[in-house]
Design a protein around this nucleic acid. Sequence first.
DNA 1: TCTGGGGTCCTAGGACCC
DNA 2: TCTGGGGTCCTAGGACCC
Length: 416
Amino acid sequence: MERLIFHIDVNSAFLSWEAAYRLQHGEELDVREIPSVVGGDESRRHGIVLAKSIPAKKYGIWTGEALHSARGKCKDLLVLPPRYWLYVQCSRAMHDILMEYTPRIQKFSVDESFLDFSGMENLHGDHMELAENIKERIKKELGFTVNIGISNNKLLAKVASDLKKPDRIHTLFPWEIEKKMWPLTVESLFMVGRATTKKLNNMNIFTIGDLAQFDVELLKYKLKSHGEMIWRYANGLECSDVRKSNYMEMKGIGNSTTTAFDLEDRETAFRVLLSLCETVGIRLRDSGNCCRVISISIRGSDLLFYGMQKKVDVATDSTRRIHETACSLFDRLWKGNPIRHLGVQVTDLCCSDFFQFSMLDSFDYEKDKKLNIAMDEIRLKYGSGSVMRSCFLNSGLPPLSGGVGEDDYPLMSSML
DNA sequence: TCTGGGGTCCTAGGACCC
DNA sequence: TCTGGGGTCCTAGGACCC
């Protein structure tokens, strides 16, 4: 059966949402119309561009760039601090509108969704009119613009929504591939990043068309399974379902943070690890899972990145257990160099319905479990800052870390 | 380009088993 | 024990996405 898939993408999401909010609250200036960016706090070493306006883009400013460097390109650049609670609200409001059109929605990220309209032609009529309707409703009711890409699979719909911005609708049906997609540079294809672009360029592949017409066996030989996948993408071949994401299927949960200052001693590092384990633990328990693998990652002040993981004998969702493992990993991994960034990840998740315990240690599972539950409930009810471990008092370190922003936003469920 | 944070999947080597 | 092959588990690291 022929499918009909839409991909909806908010234009410069964080910046558009800031602009819409400010206008709704009586500000005269539309920050989308001047060189502006949403950027992190430089004093805490989070100073990068998270989103840019179109005028800022004209100065050559790119997402992920250091604010310092962005200011070098544009003297009068307006830098807005991020407000993640607002972005979550905007994202939900858009989702609510989309739900009125079809229940078959896949939320791909905070600002992107796939919609499946297959077999609903009688309900909605012409796909261009439908897209126009959705786009205008979002603009009128929420105050920001989106791009909509239309095709009969997710890959082509996504490429289409990226064509020309902002506030546009594009189709990219199979018969339009040669004209609309093949002339694009190969790095504009989904799943072709910097490393792959370099390899492809070395093989004389520069456009998506070059890739589509290349020998697939040779690509497989050079790039393994990834080579075959991007070759299929270049030919518009993709057939995955628009599926409701649900957090039972989640593969892992992690939190990491760039600390405000370099960490030089193990005790401080342990404390930062604890603040990360708290956040990971809360999210893990909220998802109804336990984990079997715990890993940590370190980025030194030299910016080099390394990590280590451990499989634990008994699956756990205990903040304390995760922290103990994280610390022992840290002692094996750390070489004594100054630390800029720490991360904690849990993977190999399993359902927490049953509770396994080992008789080989003296750990009081029941007591620990009750403590975790009590802390989670208090934080949910009174906010994430309402309880903290005493070791964070006067430490200069946040008691919970990782996640987006340190403002006291309501704890998010692990699924967007 | 000089670097935030949260994810997914893949590959390859070593250990250990039969 | 001087030497096969195959399977699985574990771990490190790379590449990509937003």
